[in-house]
């Protein structure tokens, strides 16, 4: 096997591995979008989803040689950026709503039932 054959085989294996990793990334991001628990988390997940899709299009372009979709990559980046900016403005205008269920999540992760998020932050601020 000469050097060019080795390089081609190596690239093929790398493309397969990276497609599997990208599928894993899509899956984990979608779990985060479904779980929430707050609206900014979901918006962040959608932003991450567009950035993973940009990488996915690049890998497909290398794999099939069909690089027409690179133009779509730029448009996808623009749309994702504008959507995130619009969602950020919407979060600012909407205010924080009660149905976000953020406090439960904070308490569960911390593992200490006596220390809720607000009190802990306030006591830390008083310490300083």
């Amino acid at each position: 096997m000469n050097r060019t054959d080795f390089a081609t085989t190596f690239l093929d294996v790398c493309l397969d591995v990276s497609l599997a990793l990208l599928a894993l990334a899509f899956f984990l991001t979608i779990i985060r979008i479904i779980k929430g628990p707050t609206l900014p988390d979901r918006v962040l997940g959608l932003d991450m989803l567009t950035s993973v899709a940009i990488g996915f299009i690049a890998v497909l372009g290398i794999d099939t040689g069909f690089t027409l979709y690179v133009d779509i990559t730029i448009a996808l980046g623009l749309v994702g950026f504008l959507a995130t900016v619009a969602f950020a403005r919407f979060i600012l205008a909407r205010g924080k709503t009660a149905d976000d269920g953020e406090k439960k999540e904070v308490r569960k992760i911390d593992g200490d039932p006596h220390e809720s998020g607000e009190g802990a932050i306030a006591s830390r601020g008083a310490e300083r």
Binding site: L21, L24, A25, F26, L28, T29, G45, V52, G55
Partner: peptide, 16 residues
């Protein structure tokens, strides 16, 4: 390609 896909997967893991 493998490093970039690894970064994307680690970012998704951190997001979760």
């Amino acid at each position: 390609v493998v490093a970039g896909a690894g970064f994307a997967a680690i970012a998704a893991l951190g997001l979760l």
